[in-house]
Structures are given as C-alpha cells and as structure tokens.
Amino acid sequence: MATQIVMDRTGDTRHTFDVHDRAEVEKAERRFKELTGAGFTAAVRSGPGEQRVIRSFDPTAEETLFYPRLVGG
C-alpha cells in the first residue's frame, strides 16, 4: 500500500492505494496531477530527514506528501 498525504485544515488527509491495483494507481495519478496542477508541491522521503520534490507521479513511492503553494507571510 502507498499513501498520498495532503496537508489541509484538518492537519492532513490521507489517501491510500494498492500499488498492484491498476485502477487505484490511475486514480492516485489523477489526484497527483490535480494537486500539482493546483499549485501543491509533492515530496517523497529519500532518507531519514531527507526528501526530494517530484514533478511527476511516482507509483513506487511509499509516501507522497503534498503541501499548498507557498506565499509570503
């Protein structure tokens, strides 16, 4: 199972999907495109405390985190 974590006002919303289920993977990819298209940044962990930003859907990523567009505070 893989998880997409989307930051929101509730802390986050999690969407899990079975990486072996084609329909679920397609749905996760659509979600990825919708979120990044709306300005969210997607990041995956690459080591303890390390991460990399991804620009295209990675079905092998165990956990993908999405945070909203950054603005000056």
Partner: peptide
C-alpha cells in the same frame, strides 16, 4: 516569513 497557502497549523 513564508507559509503554505491556507489556514494550516504549526506542524504543517
């Protein structure tokens, strides 16, 4: 100062 857009809490 920069923050993710939306009313997010400190941890996020």
């Amino acid at each position: 100062c920069f923050v993710p857009d939306g009313d997010l809490v400190a941890g996020d």
